[in-house]
């Protein structure tokens, strides 16, 4: 297995998240970092596009690679999203598997933050388009000061996360920092989704993307104890 960590890998994944959605960005990241593998988090959970769920012969369990047939797998559901559905599953890897590869894990975990940043930035753009198209009195919702403040708060989170990520290679940020970046993105998403009004509460739309983005962090981050 070769994993080549190149700066443009993150930018491709980040861009795919912004322009093409969760499924395309996950495919981009998984193909670059964990080709042919089913990426699973520390408790065995996977959130992957249908193609990866169907095509992976081996499982990557938070750094350890095993045969897919070796563990018990359970489908947990499918979420419909713009740009392609994702499947939720859990693959129970027998304890004691060895061959932990820190390099792959470092690439995957860093890429995931870039991916979620891209999704969150796109959510901000979607919210701005929505708000600009809605009126109150003789102005748009986007021009309401409370709304501008929320957009700016989201932007500040994005800028800080990006500032921390910029120029950073795989493995250079410890899990605690990565977890913090994920928490920042989750907070930004939650505030931005509110700006979409009830349209952000519909299945299959941008609110669902934000929910899946949050689930990605939950599935793949190692919780702090």
């Amino acid at each position: 297995m070769t994993t080549i960590a190149r700066a443009d890998q993150w930018s491709r994944c980040h861009r795919a998240a912004r322009t093409d959605g969760v499924s395309a960005a996950l495919t981009e990241l998984a193909t670059a970092v964990l080709p042919g593998l089913l990426p699973c988090g520390p408790a065995g959970h996977a959130i992957v596009p249908t193609g990866i769920a169907a095509g992976a012969a081996r499982v990557w369990a938070d750094g350890v690679t095993v045969d897919r047939g070796a563990g018990v797998e359970k489908a947990l559901g499918v979420v419909e999203l713009p740009g392609g559905d994702v499947e939720l599953l859990r693959h129970q890897v027998e304890p004691g598997a060895n061959g932990f590869s820190p390099a792959e894990r470092a690439c995957w975990t860093l890429g995931l933050v870039w991916l979620r940043l891209g999704l969150s930035e796109e959510l901000r753009e979607t919210a701005m388009r929505y708000l600009n198209g809605r009126r109150t009195g003789n102005s748009t919702l986007l021009q309401q000061q409370m709304v501008k403040s929320t957009v700016a708060d989201g932007l500040i989170e994005h800028l800080e996360v990006r500032a921390v990520l910029t120029g950073i290679g795989p493995g250079e940020l410890p899990d605690t920092v990565l977890n913090h970046l994920h928490a920042q993105l989750t907070e930004a998403d939650r505030a931005l989704v509110k700006l979409l009004g009830a349209s952000g509460y519909l299945a299959g739309g941008p609110g669902q993307v934000a929910r899946v983005s949050e689930l990605l962090a939950e599935a793949y981050c190692r919780p702090e104890v």
Binding site: A43, H45, L88, K194, A198, G207, L215, E218
Partner: peptide, 30 residues
Amino acid sequence: FGAGARLEHPVLDKLVRDARGMEFIEGTSN
């Protein structure tokens, strides 16, 4: 509930999803 809490605990996942809707019913926080 550790990594993947919501994937492992459907009730918790549902509570999170339900809670989100409360922002909109009968007027937003703003």
